[in-house]
Design a binder for these strands. Structure first.
Length: 769
RNA sequence: GGGCGCUUAACUCAGUGGUCAGAGUGCUUCCUUUACACGGAAGAAGUCGGGGGUUCAAAUCCCUCAGCGCCCACCA
């Protein structure tokens, strides 16, 4: 057979991937039985059942766009492990999938619509969701194509999406479970309100960015109080000082008479002073050093103030509405103004009335929406919350007991620190794209609730039940058509279920108690064709690979959700990989124009070169400043291996290959080296030292196998030399396969005189030392 | 305000106590030898961020300073 002088990835990759798909070996049930070590008999079904499993959990990419280099690195590293494990004889499962990415995806589609001059409200919920599903179809498929292009050996028969029907069942089940556990409650608290998204968002979705502002020193009776947001003055219900602040101790727990603006005077008339009384309270959250040491407390419009208010029984007065306009509580004078206008007007009025001491320039942090960058308005709002106390304990326990290990281990520190000071998690969103809350309201508010132990809760005149399906009859008034909550869940609520929801949970979960509405939940105990469900067979998983930026958003929440709902940790190892930066150390991002499309790189250098180049830079500690130099290295190395193979194949022209991979009868020292390289590489991959493993292989194959042994072999033609060449090549192909799957598979096929979907390198046994 | 990471050849990075400090890319010289010029042979190139300390021995451990980057935090 005539082989091209240089390796041409373009004629190989797609063809090989199709062969892998044909082989069916990405599906664990199709893996060939493997003889267990030290067993002479051929593997039986029984032996197979004893075979160890390796299950890895994907970080499902968001359908917000195509994959970037960070995904490429992550998927490559995961695939390296999966391929090695599969060759080592593990029954290997990798479930691929994508995430609906609630707020992120909705915003992108809204932007698309904006180009057509349409708002989501113009379309209505149903039509808008149709657009969302079209988007999902398009980008979901694009992402799947990219997975395949990257050589990912995931089981396509098990493709999952976080809004699949079965997944929706899991989400409802989880919500109900948490509600019954009393971890979820509906409450009125200050939340981060994004006026553009028209939704609340969680604390983790707010970015604090420095901004130049003003600090206003305002007279409050005998005191001066510093604030950056004078417009919230209308919502003040108290003054607070630190408990140990001696300056104000005579005023503590007294009503202080302060001047404020009479907000019922119409805006076209000059402002007038109105006297009101505010209680002076103490709270240890107050910083004595800041300003004058006195804080005005606005419980309805500040997270901290809300908590101070709770601790001290202060009133909450809402003065700003969801559209960031001043509402009726702000009085005739300001009602209807945008907050910015209200601030200007109030400052002007205060100045006119001589109530402003001074105004200083002040740089401080402003909260902005992670998704659309709008300024966040803290707002008192009725939302659903997730109590973090017990989940926090579970999440800590998983790490403290060593049931879950971080790699690198240092990530356990920020993980623990983050858990220490947590507010309850706001899980409801006023969006359309996502899992609608399984909450049904009675339309008849006057319904009486007789059975207090029922699931029916009276909450500010709202009567609701939690139910997986819409009840046929309202269990509250027996009369109305119940109305489902229009809110959807935070996307991370559903992502938190990923490791087990994708395996079919809760189909095999223990039955939970029937709910009060009389509908026992028939989702439990659904019949299964197989003797065991995927959940029983493959859960918990062994490994998750993740970028660090979703450590809190996702990893933490999967851990406590898994521990509570399945009573098991969802994975044993967490691999946190490096972040891929630009060559200048900048964040890669589409909006900055610094993003790189991996497909351009696979086109130019080949997937194997890309994988090898990324892996050889994937050290534990340091982020990757991505330059194409390493891909050039990868490409040259691929070509080198190609030519090594050509040489050995030519040399072996009339010989039969020993595909059983037996050690040749030779004492040549290169064989010992091959042996120790095998041990090193295996250990390095098992310890997630991908860069070391790649470099070990590179150095051995190029500078020892090729430069030394092959050169030496050129003037020899004996059996021993040929056997050794064949052995070295075969071993190298196997060890390199996780990094360069396409090329090695191609060569393996050529050696056999043609690729054979039944006997692929993919499932050959990993070399042992 | 806390915490983490980084600072090694022109560039991107390995190297975490022990021979003259390594790789890829780039550069210089030679070699178009029948696997590969995406190659081979040889070579130049670094006060291992600054300073101090521990040690027989430090890029490697400790302290300190400086710069860069990231994360967390209720400075109104």
């Amino acid at each position: 057979m005539e082989l091209e002088k240089t390796y041409n990835h373009k004629s190989v990759e797609d063809r090989i991937y199709k062969l892998w798909e044909e082989s069916g070996f990405f599906t664990p049930e199709n893996l060939p039985p493997r003889q267990n070590q030290n067993e002479q008999k051929p593997a039986s079904a029984e032996a197979m059942a004893r075979q160890r499993k390796f299950v890895t959990c994907i970080a499902p990419p968001n359908i917000t766009g195509e994959l970037h280099l960070g995904h490429t690195l992550q998927l490559t590293l995961q695939d390296i492990i999966v391929r090695m494990k599969r060759m080592q004889g593990y029954i290997t499962l990798w479930v691929p999938g994508i995430d609906h990415a609630g707020i992120g995806a909705q915003n992108i589609v809204e932007k698309q619509l904006a180009k057509e001059g349409i708002k989501r409200q113009d379309l209505g919920r149903e039509k808008f969701l149709e657009r969302m599903w079209q988007w999902k179809e398009k980008y979901g498929n694009a992402i799947m194509d990219q997975f395949k292009k990257l050589g990912i050996s995931a089981d396509w028969t098990r493709l999952r999406f976080t809004m699949d029907d079965q997944y929706q069942e899991a989400v409802k089940k989880a919500f109900q479970h948490f509600y019954e556990k009393d971890w979820i409650y509906k409450g009125e608290r200050v939340v981060n309100w994004c006026p553009r998204c028209a939704s609340s968002i969680s604390d983790l979705e707010v970015n604090y960015v420095p901004e130049a502002g003003k600090l206003y020193f305002i007279k409050y009776g005998p005191f001066i109080v510093a604030t950056t947001r004078p417009e919230t003055r209308l919502g003040d219900t108290g003054l607070a000082v630190h408990p140990e602040d001696a300056r104000y101790k005579n005023y503590v727990n007294k009503e202080i008479e302060v001047e404020t603006i009479d907000n019922e005077i119409p805006a076209d008339q000059p402002p007038k002073i109105k006297k009101i009384k505010l209680p002076m309270i103490t709270d240890s959250s107050v910083d004595k050093e800041f300003g004058t040491g006195i804080v005005k407390v606005t419980p309805a419009h500040d997270l901290t103030d809300f908590e101070i208010g709770q601790r001290n029984n202060l009133l909450s007065i809402i003065v700003i509405d969801e559209h960031t306009r001043m509402n009726e509580n702000s009085g005739l004078r300001y009602r209807g103004l945008k907050t910015k206008e209200a601030r200007e007007q109030i400052v002007k009025d205060l100045e006119t009335l001589g109530l402003i001491e001074k105004i200083e320039n002040y740089n401080h942090n402003i909260g902005r929406c992670d998704r659309c960058n709008s300024v966040i308005e803290p707002l008192l709002s009725k939302q659903w919350f997730f109590k973090m106390e017990t989940p926090k304990q579970l999440a800590l326990e998983a790490i403290d007991t060593g049931q879950i290990k971080f790699h690198p281990a240092r990530w356990a520190t920020p993980y623990r620190d983050w858990l220490k000071n947590l507010r309850d998690w706001n899980i409801s969103r006023q969006l359309w794209w996502g899992h609608q809350l399984p909450v049904y309201f009675c339309k008849n508010k006057l319904a009486e609730v007789k059975n207090q132990k029922s699931k029916v809760k009276n909450n500010n005149e709202e009567f609701f039940i939690i139910s997986e399906n819409k009840p046929k009859q309202c269990p509250i008034c027996k009369d109305c058509e119940m109305r489902q909550s229009e809110d959807v869940l935070d996307t991370w609520f559903s992502s938190a279920l990923w490791p087990f929801a994708t395996l079919g949970w809760p189909t095999s979960a223990p039955p939970s108690s029937a709910t009060s509405d009389g509908h026992s939940k028939a989702t439990v105990g659904k019949p299964n064709k197989k003797t065991k469900s995927d959940f029983e067979e493959y859960y918990p998983t062994d490994l998750i690979v993740s970028a660090r930026d979703i450590l809190y958003l996702w990893i933490v929440r999967m851990i406590f959700s898994g521990m509570e709902l399945t009573k098991k940790v969802p994975f044993k190892d967490i691999l946190i990989h490096a972040t891929v930066l630009t060559k200048d150390g900048k964040r890669m991002s589409k909006s900055l124009g610094t993003g790189i499309n991996p497909l351009e790189l696979t086109e130019k250098y080949g997937t194997d070169a890309l994988r090898f180049g990324l892996a050889s830079q994937a050290s534990e500690l340091q982020d990757i400043r991505f330059g194409e130099d390493t891909l050039i290295m990868g490409k040259k190395f691929a070509n080198k291996l190609w030519n090594i193979s050509r040489y050995v194949i030519t040399k072996m022209k009339h010989e039969t290959w020993n595909m059983e991979h037996q050690l040749p009868n030779s004492k040549h020292p290169i064989l010992q080296r091959m042996n120790s390289v095998t041990a090193e590489v295996t250990e390095q991959i098992e310890n997630y030292n991908f860069a070391e493993a790649a470099n070990t292989l590179y150095r051995f194959i190029w500078h020892e196998f090729a430069d030394k042994y092959i050169e030496e072999s050129k003037n020899k033609d004996d059996q021993e030399t040929k056997d050794t060449l064949a052995y070295l090549l075969l071993t190298s192909l196997k060890l390199l396969h996780p990094f360069m799957p396409f090329l090695t598979e191609e060569i393996y096929g050529i050696i056999q005189g043609g690729a054979n979907p039944k006997n692929m390198l993919l499932v050959q046994s990993w070399p042992t030392s």
